[in-house]
Amino acid sequence: MTLSHVLLLASALFSVGVYGLLTRRQVVAILLSVELMANAANLVFVAMSRFRGGVSGQIFAIFALALTVAEVAVGLALVILLYRAHSDTRVDLASELKQ
């Protein structure tokens, strides 16, 4: 197990997240995909910190974790808003940008 293995794993995780982001139609499911991607990024931080020394990477990971929590909170608030407007949470309903 070397650093590059961990990074490859993180890339794979990230790509899976992107796949979800592109295919999902439910906003909550999209949020889940975003979580996957964030998790992959976090993994890179921690791996770098552990394999190359120093604790900054892990501090960064903690911060990123907190940010992710914040993002989820705001994201869910938006989901509720979308649900109020359309009685559903399918993302293709939120296409006002086109109008």
């Binding site: 992107v18 982001l21 592109l22 999902r24 999209i30 296409s95 086109k98």
Partner: peptide, 14 residues
């Protein structure tokens, strides 16, 4: 191209 549909924009970003 401007479908107003979020995943399409994500695809473009990716």
């Amino acid at each position: 191209i401007q479908s107003g549909f979020a995943p399409d924009y994500v695809l473009a970003v990716v």
